[in-house]
Simulated scan of single mutants.
Amino acid sequence: MKDITIVICSYNYERFLREAIDSALAQEPDRTVVVVIDDGSTDGSRAIIESYGDRIVPVIKENGGQASAYNLGLEMADTPYLLYLDSDDVLYEGAVAQVLRAFESGNYAKVQFRLSVIDGEGVRTGARVPNSTPPAGCGELLRRGWLYPSPPASGNAYRVSALRQILPVPKAKGRGIAADFFAIYGIALLGDVMAIEEELGGYRVHRKESGAAPATNREVGLSIANCQDISEVVHAFPHRWAALRQLVSERLGEELPERAIDFSYEKAHLCMRVYDATLWKRWQWILCDSRQYFRSIVANPFWTVGKKVSAIALTLVCLVPSRRISDQAVLYIANPLARGAQGARS
């Protein structure tokens, strides 16, 4: 029996798929099973998957969305640990070896590691996610509503026995329900989370090239997520939290707070209200609607005092009369990737 299953979930990402598979196959081959789930792709993904023969476990299925791929990957896992790798991301050399050593050092429900933010060509941008390290006791903080700092999907490995208490993901209700959201945060209620400081993989930021409307400069500048603008973050997050609360109540018998506290969500509100806004609208936001935003900074259990002071100071720059300076401050708050681009335009 091997130790960890890497489940690559893919849909129409033939441009990146081979790089993802190769990075997974390079990880401790004697201890790793690589499962590639194609979720009904209509591009050349299937031919790429078939070219690997028995080096991987291929699964070709009808399109059912991320939740169906996550559920099937967990169902297939016959190892103590599991890592979901998005097909546009990569693992760096030695990533799984470090993850397995971390699991073996304690009874952890999840081991997470930082991801380098890379561009469409795989070049490191200099940014990384997450920027903060979660403290011990993530579960207790989550029970108070605080979402702990976590990398995107590809930076998380799970103890399968714990993950099966959270998944399978229920059929999505409402908008923007992401399967990885359930796994990343629900797992913290079932055991300790171990955070590796090193960047062990690449999180690729790009825009879909086919069938998608061109992204505006505002969308590219303000959002680090792929093909998702700030307004979608704001609208989707409450649905995700409500769905997680329901799942935790039904499966674990626990009640999470009605409202979550998350700086990423609050800064999305800031962007919608302040970016490219008149001076009056910017002051109106800070005087009337900024309470939750500043609470997510001042009471943040994951940030140092220095980081809190810096965030507040940078936010106050948004109130200067110059819209150009205000917008630059918003870009620095919202998305580290925008900083280089902003400097290049100046």
Rank of each mutant, 00 (worst) to 15 (best):
residue 255 E to K: 10
residue 260 A to L: 03
residue 292 Q to M: 15
residue 337 L to W: 00
residue 99 V to N: 05
residue 61 K to G: 03
residue 87 S to C: 12
residue 190 L to P: 07
residue 229 D to V: 07
residue 244 L to W: 01
residue 215 A to V: 10
residue 127 A to G: 05
residue 76 M to T: 08
residue 9 C to T: 14
residue 21 I to A: 02
residue 206 H to A: 10
residue 85 L to Q: 06
residue 36 V to E: 01
residue 37 I to R: 09
residue 331 L to Q: 15
residue 19 E to C: 12
residue 240 R to H: 07
residue 148 Y to V: 09
residue 153 A to S: 13
residue 252 L to C: 05
residue 46 R to A: 13
residue 120 G to S: 12
residue 81 Y to E: 07
residue 93 E to P: 00
residue 126 G to I: 13
residue 297 I to V: 13
residue 299 A to F: 10
residue 95 A to V: 08
residue 179 A to K: 05
residue 309 V to I: 15
residue 104 E to G: 09
residue 232 E to D: 11
residue 205 V to R: 14
residue 66 Q to A: 13
residue 49 I to G: 01
residue 104 E to W: 05
residue 86 D to R: 06
residue 128 R to F: 08
residue 259 R to L: 04
residue 294 F to A: 13
residue 78 D to N: 07
residue 19 E to R: 15
residue 90 V to I: 11
residue 232 E to P: 06
residue 37 I to P: 03
residue 49 I to Q: 06
residue 207 R to N: 12
residue 236 A to F: 09
residue 28 E to S: 15
residue 294 F to M: 15
residue 17 L to A: 07
residue 11 Y to E: 04
residue 324 R to N: 12
residue 323 R to T: 12
residue 199 E to Y: 00
residue 92 Y to R: 11
residue 7 V to H: 00
residue 229 D to L: 00
residue 131 N to P: 00
residue 217 N to W: 04
residue 196 I to G: 02
residue 22 D to G: 03
residue 7 V to M: 01
residue 322 S to N: 08
residue 20 A to Y: 00
residue 220 V to S: 04
residue 14 E to Q: 12
residue 99 V to H: 02
residue 276 D to E: 08
residue 263 F to K: 07
residue 24 A to R: 10
residue 284 Q to V: 05
residue 151 P to W: 02
residue 119 D to I: 04
residue 264 S to R: 12
